[in-house]
Amino acid sequence: MRITVDHDRCVGSGLCAMADPDSFTQSDEDGTVRILSQPQGEPGEPVRKAVDLCPSRALRLVE
């Protein structure tokens, strides 16, 4: 599975970066999400939590 981002929806809450700092960070320019790495194999708990926490549902895990 891989992480996808609907960048227009991102409001820079940073909850993804807090839940999974290995996969997500926030841009210094506008605070929106930047993906640092994609899941290797089956997505673990941190990245699943990060996707669930996203308040605007900008993040998805897709096949």
């Binding site: 409001v11 940073g14 970066a17």
Partner: peptide
Amino acid sequence: DPPKHTAHRRLVIPDFTSK
């Protein structure tokens, strides 16, 4: 509402990121 909201909010987001 978006998109107007987005334009305004994006200007202040960097000052309130967890970093």
